[in-house]
Deep mutational scan, measured.
Amino acid sequence: NQESVVAAVLIPINTALTVGMMTTRVVSPTGIPAEDIPRLISMQVNQVVPMGTTLMPDMVKGYAP
């Protein structure tokens, strides 16, 4: 099972992602793959992401799977 990126904290809208904001977990449905965390650093979320929420591609500005 592939791990997906999950919010480790509440991430406010338009916040640039940092390593500490993200964790990984096997979830269903799957979100952004864990191995993409290095690509996500400094990208901004386009909505509020509650802690424990799986990051989906459409939540991150400029992210393309």
Rank of each mutant, 00 (worst) to 15 (best):
V19T: 09
T24R: 11
T23I: 08
T18Q: 11
V49M: 04
P65L: 03
T24D: 02
L55G: 00
R39A: 11
L17F: 02
E3S: 04
T18I: 07
P33W: 07
P33E: 03
Y63W: 15
A34Q: 11
N46T: 12
A7E: 00
M59W: 04
D58K: 12
G20Q: 11
R25M: 04
A34D: 11
G62D: 15
L40R: 00
Q44S: 11
V49I: 15
D58A: 12
S4M: 02
E3H: 08
I13K: 14
T18F: 08
M51Q: 12
N1G: 11
G20W: 13
R25F: 08
V27D: 14
G62Y: 10
P29M: 04
L55A: 01
L17Q: 01
A7L: 02
T53F: 09
T30W: 13
P57D: 06
T15A: 15
T54G: 02
E3T: 05
I13C: 05
P33K: 09
V6P: 00
G52K: 06
R25T: 07
G62T: 07
N46P: 02
S28W: 03
D36V: 08
T23W: 11
E3P: 05
V26D: 15
A64N: 12
G31C: 03
M51H: 14
M56D: 04
T24F: 11
I41K: 05
V5P: 01
T18G: 04
M21T: 03
A8N: 05
T24V: 05
A8T: 09
V19H: 15
S4W: 04
G31N: 01
S4Q: 02
T30K: 06
V19I: 07
V19M: 15
V48F: 13
N46D: 06
R39K: 10
A8C: 04
G52M: 04
M21Q: 08
P38M: 14
N14F: 07
V45W: 01
A34M: 07
P65I: 09
N14K: 12
P38L: 08
M56V: 10
M43I: 03
M21P: 00
V5E: 00
Q44P: 09
L10E: 13
G52L: 09
V27R: 06
M43N: 03
A64T: 11
P50R: 08
V5F: 01
G62F: 06
N46G: 08
I13P: 12
V5M: 02
L55D: 01
S42G: 12
S28R: 02
P12K: 09
E3G: 05
A16H: 14
Q44D: 04
T53I: 06
N14M: 10
V49S: 01
I32Q: 00
P57H: 08
P33H: 10
G31V: 06
D36P: 00
R25G: 15
T23E: 09
Q47H: 13
S4E: 00
N14P: 01
G31K: 02
R25A: 12
V5S: 02
V19P: 11
E3L: 08
M22E: 01
G52W: 09
M59N: 03
A7Y: 02
Q47K: 15
V19D: 13
A8K: 10
M43D: 04
A16K: 11
I37L: 06
N1A: 14
E3R: 04
P57G: 15
I32L: 04
M22A: 01
G31F: 02
V9Y: 10
N1C: 07
K61D: 14
Y63C: 03
M51S: 08
P57M: 06
M59D: 03
T53M: 11
T54Q: 04
T23K: 12
Q44A: 15
L17P: 02
V49N: 01
Q2G: 15
V48L: 15
L55T: 01
S28L: 07
R39Y: 13
A64C: 12
M56G: 09
P50V: 15
A34R: 07
V6C: 04
M56P: 01
M22Q: 01
I32S: 02
V19N: 13
P33I: 09
S28Q: 15
Q47S: 13
P57Y: 10
M22N: 01
K61N: 12
P38D: 15
P65H: 11
P38W: 07
G31R: 03
R39M: 09
P57C: 11
V27N: 05
G52P: 01
M21D: 04
T15I: 07
V9K: 14
Q2N: 14
L55R: 00
T24S: 11
V60S: 01
E35R: 05
L10N: 06
V5G: 00
P29N: 05
T24I: 06
Q44K: 08
V60W: 01
I37H: 03
T15F: 09
P65D: 08
L10P: 06
R39N: 05
E35F: 06
A16R: 11
L17G: 00
V9L: 11
T23D: 06
Y63G: 03
T24E: 11
T30G: 10
V19S: 12
M22F: 10
V60Y: 02
R39P: 02
S4L: 02
E35K: 05
M51Y: 11
Q2I: 14
P57I: 05
T18S: 11
V48T: 11
G52Q: 06
V45M: 05
L55H: 00
A8R: 09
M59K: 02
M59S: 03
V5D: 01
V9D: 04
M22K: 01
L40G: 00
P57S: 15
V9W: 07
R39T: 10
T15K: 14
D36F: 09
T54W: 02
T24A: 13
V9N: 07
T54D: 01
P38S: 08
I32P: 00
Q47I: 13
P33T: 06
M43L: 10
P29L: 15
P29E: 05
L40I: 14
T30Y: 15
R39E: 03
P50Q: 13
A7R: 00
M51T: 15
Q44Y: 10
R25S: 05
T15R: 07
I37W: 06
L17E: 00
T53G: 05
G31Y: 02
V6E: 03
T30C: 04
A8L: 13
L40Q: 00
G62C: 07
L40C: 15
K61H: 13
P29V: 09
P29S: 12
P33M: 10
T53E: 08
M59P: 01
E3V: 05
Q44I: 12
A16T: 15
A34K: 14
T23G: 14
P50E: 10
L10D: 07
Q44E: 10
G31L: 02
Q47L: 11
K61R: 10
I13Q: 12
G20S: 14
D36E: 10
M51R: 15
V60K: 01
V9G: 06
I11V: 06
A34H: 11
V6I: 13
I37M: 08
P50Y: 09
L17I: 05
T18D: 15
L10C: 06
S28D: 14
G20I: 09
I11P: 00
N14R: 13
G20H: 12
S28E: 15
A7I: 02
I11N: 00
D36G: 13
K61Q: 11
G62N: 14
P12H: 08
S28T: 14
E35T: 15
P33C: 12
L55C: 02
V9Q: 12
T23Y: 11
V45E: 01
P65M: 05
Y63F: 12
Q2A: 13
G62M: 06
G52A: 04
M59I: 04
A7K: 00
I11T: 00
Q47D: 07
P33F: 12
N1S: 15
T15L: 10
A8S: 10
A7M: 03
P65A: 10
S28I: 07
V60M: 05
Q47R: 13
A8F: 09
S42M: 08
I37N: 02
I32E: 01
V48G: 14
T30P: 14
Q2H: 08
T24Y: 11
V6D: 00
N14W: 14
V9I: 08
V26P: 07
V45G: 00
V49D: 01
G62E: 09
K61V: 09
E35G: 15
L40A: 01
Y63R: 04
N1Q: 15
P50D: 12
L10R: 07
S4N: 02
V27A: 15
V49K: 00
Y63Q: 10
G31A: 05
A8D: 10
N1T: 13
V45A: 08
P12N: 12
L17C: 01
I13T: 06
M56R: 09
P65W: 02
T24N: 10
I37V: 10
R39V: 03
T30N: 15
V19Q: 09
P33Q: 07
M43G: 05
P29T: 06
M56Q: 14
V48E: 07
A7C: 03
R25E: 12
M21K: 03
R25Q: 12
K61G: 08
I41N: 05
E35P: 06
P57K: 15
P65T: 08
M43K: 07
L10T: 13
M51C: 05
Q47G: 06
P12G: 10
I32V: 05
A7F: 02
N1P: 15
T24L: 08
L17W: 02
I11F: 02
S4V: 02
I11E: 00
